[in-house]
Design a protein around this nucleic acid. Structure first.
Lengths: 224, 224
DNA sequence: CGCTGATTTGATTGTTATCAATACAAGTGG
DNA sequence: CCACTTGTATTGATAACAATCAAATCAGCG
């Protein structure tokens, strides 16, 4: 089971695409495995940053704390996602926190090992650059959105985007309202109210089990 | 003059550190030069993204537009900064706008050329990763800050950080209030009022020529 | 010196956070 | 399987922060 997981780990991750089977074997041999329970902490800010994490299965929230103690959800890591960008750099300390939202399997690669891998297989660097680029683009959009749009618009956008990326009309919110709130830069109460509002306007339907059905995506996107 | 500028260009940029003089020569030979007037546009969102830009001198603001048309300043590029991260990736379109704030000199490298350089000199990839990592870290902080802290706290933080990074007590605001506002996710009016407030509290002194003097950095950081 | 854009100041409004209480859901242990 | 406990979500009342609109003042520049 854990031997099998090793394979999954390396194969799951886009950054190791384009590598030969033998090269994947090399990587597999240096990967370490961990399991975390729901609510368990993967790392804290101030922790030293010396490993690259690969989510082999489960779900992890990565967040920061502001000076006033409020939480900001930055990323929701899913199977195949990686974290530890700065593991590659000079930065020696983490700036965020990570917590498992469900039982989660993690593979990790030590900083030194990974740097060697990158030297050996330049395509890995390129792939990592790609991942970073996407993350930057996503974060830029999030920054723009939280800074300039209303909570209502952000929520509407989140709903339509999530539905679109899953290619469905109805989906289950992957987060507790509390976490969704810190992701969108608002409060659980406000999310509740806005969802009720959207429902009254006929834009969505709320179903049991945190399931949201999009009725009118076009109108949702027009919400200001 | 322009021949001289070429050298400056490549030498300015941290991503080309660790390269031999001969290698720098190679790069110099493929770099192109541009000059922009104040207010001139370097690129727009939707533009195809096929060059890496190096700021050889001057100042450039990089911003996005939200759905509602409001502007969000993402980066203020100074001499030696680079832009065009995604130039390295699949993303073919830009998502932001760039405008020269003062007369500005730019060197550019075409996407294909740069990708070849990276293949040739892996250290460049590593350096680019470093730049990205820092940018990600900065952006994560900005996101957290705009989403969770008050305008007052963000402004106070901006002032102390800027002063600290320049290692001075008094400095000239590098941006118009309008631009600073879009950076901090607020309005020019609010910035005016908050600065007046800080001054009344004795935390800062406003001097002619957009110069701000920090009187009590410790207290400023405690602003909520 | 006059013009244009930037900044300040004032009055008002609106959105959303906050506080508080209740309802609901889920998981635990008897 | 039911009561109990704990965490999560909803709803309501209120307050605060900051945006907006409008007008006046100021600065920089041709």
């Amino acid at each position: 089971m854990s031997a099998h997981a090793t394979h999954e780990c390396v194969q799951l991750v886009p950054i190791f695409q384009e590598l030969e089977a033998s090269q994947l074997d090399t990587i597999e041999s240096i990967v370490q495995h961990h399991h975390y329970q729901t609510g368990e902490t993967l790392f804290n800010a101030e922790d030293s940053l010396d490993t690259l994490l690969i989510v082999a299965g489960g779900q992890v929230k990565v967040y920061q704390l502001a000076a006033n103690g409020r939480e900001q959800l930055l990323y929701l890591l899913q199977t195949g996602d990686i974290d530890g960008e700065a593991a590659l750099f000079e930065n020696k300390q983490r700036t965020s926190y990570a917590e498992a939202l469900v039982p989660t399997d993690i593979c990790s690669i030590r900083r030194d090992d990974f740097q060697q891998l990158m030297q050996q297989y330049p395509s890995i660097s390129i792939n990592v650059l790609n991942v970073f680029g996407k993350r930057l683009t996503q974060l830029e959009k999030q920054t723009t959105s939280t800074a300039t749009e209303s909570v209502e618009a952000r929520l509407a956008n989140y709903l339509t985007e999530t539905a679109a990326s899953l290619d469905v009309q109805a989906f289950k919110l992957p987060l507790k309202k509390k976490d969704l709130a810190t992701f969108l830069g608002t409060t659980p109460e406000t999310i509740s109210r806005k969802l009720t509002r959207f429902e009254k306007q006929g834009l969505i339907t709320q179903k049991p089990g945190k399931v949201i059905q999009i009725n009118d995506a076009d109108q949702l996107l027009l919400v200001e």
